Amino acid sequence: MINGQGTGPRVARLDELGPADVPAVLALAGAAGVADGADPLSEHVTLRLRHAGAGPASHLVVRDPAGPLVGYGFLEGPDEAGEVDAELVVHPGWRRQGVGRALVSAALSGVPESGALLVWAHSDHPSAAALALDLGLHRSRVLWQLRRSLRDPLPEVGLPAGVAIRAFRPGVDDEAWLAVNRRAFASHPEQGRWNSAELRLRLGEPWFDPAGFLLAVEESSGRLLGFHWTKVHDRTEAATPIGEVYVLGVDPDSHGLGLGRALTLAGLHHLRDAGLSRVMLYVDESNAGAMALYARLGFANWLRHVRYRWSDTPTAA
């Protein structure tokens, strides 16, 4: 057990979660998401919680004296650079009681010398900003969620000559898509690392629809030039569904053809034709080109996620 400061919450670090722990973590995340208006754990983390053995990780848990889970942390790393990635969530009813501070302190205790801790604050909650300031973490990355109404007019797709769009074929297009994805996101800290296991996890999700996974191919050769993978959230009677520009990429060799705009519009038309009235996407604030493209296509800022970084060598951050 790891003690929080003073008589504060106690944090247990686990290599594996028990059978009852995963539903408890997901329920905790759900309660926090309702309170904050944004999911506190990324899809990456949620998939690893739901699929045992999907990747190595450690877990921080805080329980109240009666046993229920009130705080959780997911840790990956350290990697070759000594960086530890973390995502943390505290139950809304247990905030301002030192649980978040105890989780961050426990995560920091696992950072190697000359390493770093990277922590996402989904929805940029003011309490997270205050805690980061207190503990010496600095903003290192901002990820925007943008939204657009699909009831507003959409421009035509306007594909370049010699280019066609078709649906992804699971088991046939996997390797070609992974190769283009790696090239398109070579400098991206998450997307560029996807491998066949990452792809298969998502192809097996209930929301996956190959008809919404659009590939731009060269008509003469069939070569994959780019893609727009769409996603639909919350297609239930109790929720209003929203579409997502899930992943959009263009092979660097095909830049300059206008494929980014054409593929974005192709996906938006697909989502509107499927009955969706709104769409969202995520984009790094530092990606000025993508931010400008989406603004021209009618997207507006909705909320932001901030990644904080702690390092004992801050000048290298």
Rank of each mutant, 00 (worst) to 15 (best):
I2N: 07
Q5M: 07
G8K: 01
L17S: 03
L26G: 05
L28E: 10
A32R: 11
G37R: 09
L41P: 05
T46S: 11
L49D: 12
H51G: 04
A54Y: 04
A57K: 12
G73A: 09
F74W: 10
D79K: 05
A81W: 02
V89L: 00
V89N: 02
R96K: 15
G98E: 11
L108C: 03
S109I: 07
G115Q: 02
A129M: 08
A132D: 15
G136P: 04
L143N: 13
Q145C: 13
L146R: 09
R147Q: 07
L150V: 11
R151N: 15
D152S: 15
V157W: 07
P160R: 03
G162S: 08
I165Q: 09
F168C: 11
R169L: 13
G171T: 09
D174N: 09
V180K: 14
N181C: 06
R183K: 04
W194M: 11
S196I: 02
G204C: 08
E205Y: 03
P206F: 13
A211T: 12
G212K: 07
L215K: 08
E219I: 12
E219K: 14
W229C: 06
T230Y: 05
K231T: 12
K231S: 14
A238L: 14
A238W: 14
P252C: 12
H255Y: 02
L259W: 13
L263I: 06
L268I: 07
H270F: 14
R272F: 15
G275Y: 05
V279A: 06
Y282A: 08
V283C: 00
D284W: 11
N287C: 01
R296H: 08
N301I: 02
R307W: 05
A316D: 12
A316G: 02
